[in-house]
Nucleic acid binder design. Sequence first.
DNA 1: ACAAAAGTGTTCCGCATACACCCATGC
DNA 2: GCATGGGTGTATGCGGAACACTTTTGT
Lengths: 238, 238
Amino acid sequence: MQETSLYPHVSVDCAIFGFDGEQLKILLITRTGESEEGRYSDMKLPGSVIYESENLDDAAYRVLYELTGIKNIYLQQFRSFGSPDRTKHPRDIVWLENAIHMKIGRIITVAYVALIKINQKLRGFADGYEAHWCNLSEIGQLAFDHNEVVEGALNYVRKKIEEDPTGMYELLPKKFTEAELRNLHEVIFGEKVDIRNFHKKFISLNYIIPLEEKQQNVAHRAARYYRFDKIIYNKSHR
Amino acid sequence: MQETSLYPHVSVDCAIFGFDGEQLKILLITRTGESEEGRYSDMKLPGSVIYESENLDDAAYRVLYELTGIKNIYLQQFRSFGSPDRTKHPRDIVWLENAIHMKIGRIITVAYVALIKINQKLRGFADGYEAHWCNLSEIGQLAFDHNEVVEGALNYVRKKIEEDPTGMYELLPKKFTEAELRNLHEVIFGEKVDIRNFHKKFISLNYIIPLEEKQQNVAHRAARYYRFDKIIYNKSHR
DNA sequence: ACAAAAGTGTTCCGCATACACCCATGC
DNA sequence: GCATGGGTGTATGCGGAACACTTTTGT
C-alpha cells in the first residue's frame, strides 16, 4: 500500500437505469466487507477510479462495458460529487482503500446516467458480476452518497426525456404497442398519464410508424404494433 | 518541483457572467508566459486546483471570493471537463506546471457558473487582480478548453433562468424599469423579445411590485420603477 | 415641433386537460 | 356472456406569438 496521496482521486459512477418491459430498475453492485461491527453487505453504484490519461466519458463507457457488455448507448454525465463528507463513513473508507490499494484522502466522483433495456442476456451477465437489477422503490441505504446520486440521476433522466424522447425507444422492443410506451412513461415519471390525451399525442408523432402487425393470443382485443423511426425523428429535430 | 503524480488533479473553473446594466460580460484572467515562440499573453477563466478536504462547491466559492470579494450568489456546478486532451497545448502544460509547482499528468475541472451584477467597486477590484470583464462577442481563443466551458455555461444559464428567473434580479438595481429587465433578457438569450408580450407577462407577475417612483431627467416619457419581491416569489414557487 | 422611449389590447393558434363509451378477443 | 384491455372525440382554458398606435417628456 502506497503512502497517502495529497491529491484527490477521481472516479466515475454510473446510475444505470434498466427497463425490463414492466418496471424501471437500477443496476447495483453488492459490496461486502469487514467493519468494526463485523461483516456487512450493502449495495453501491457501479463505478471505477479513472485510469491515467482516460477521458471521463471513456471511463464511464468502460465501466458500463465491463459490467454489462453494452456499448453505444445513451450515457450522460450529469453532475460531480466532491464533498469530503461523502466518504466519511468508516466502512466506506476501509472499502475504498482495499479496492484501490492505497490510502485515500478523498475521492471525487463524476456521475453518469444511462438508460438501457434489460434483455435476457443482460440479466445473466449482470448476475455473473454480482450486479443486480433492483427496483427503485426497494433500494435501501447505499454506499457513499449513492442514494443522492441515484436521486439526481433520476431527475436528470426525466428532464432529458422531456426534451429528447429518443432514449425511451431504446428501452422498448423494436415493435411495441402504445400501451407499452405509455407504461414506460408512467414508470419513468412515477405518475399515471391520461390514456386519451396520450393517444392523441402519440398518433400525432410522425416518427411513430404504425405497422400492420398486431398482438397474438392476448385475452382481449389485440393491440397494434408501432416502430420508432429515428431518421424521421432526426429530420424534424434540427 | 515534485515528481509526476499518477493521480489526476482536480480544479474548479468559474464562468462568471456579469451584467453592467447594458451588456453581459464574462470575467477572464490575463495569463502571460513563455513558450517556444516567445512570450505570449492570453485569457483564461478564473479557477484553482482544489485544496485537500475542500468541498467542490466551497472551492468554487473560494475562487469567486478571492477574485471578486463576493459571496452568497447564484453559483452552480454545471459540468465536469476531463478529457486528457484539454491540456494538450504545450503552452497550457508549461503554465500549469508553473502555477501548481508540480509536474502535471492531467487535470480534471469541475465547471461552475455565476451571474453577478457589475458594480463600481467590482470593476476596480477585478482590475487589481488582472481580471477583466470581457464582452462575450470579443473573447478570442482562451486557454485550455475554456471556450467550450464558456459556451456550456451560457447554455446552462439560459436553461436555469427559464426555470427560475430569480437570478435575473440579482443583476439589476433594486429599483428597475421594465425596459431594463427586458434588455437583460435580450442580452442573456441573445435575441429580441416582443415588447407587448413581454409587458403582458411582466405585469402578470405578482412578485414584481410597481413603485410610485419614476425615472428623472430622461429625454422622453419617464418609466416607472419596479422591485422584485423575493418573499412573494418563494411563496408561489414551492 | 420633433425625437425618443413608455405604455397598452386583440386576435389567433397550439397544446394540455378533463372526461366516457363501444369494440374485439379469449376464456 | 363476461372480463380484459384496445381504441377513440369534444369542449375548455391557458399561454405564446403576431401585430401598431397614442402618450409623455426633454430639447
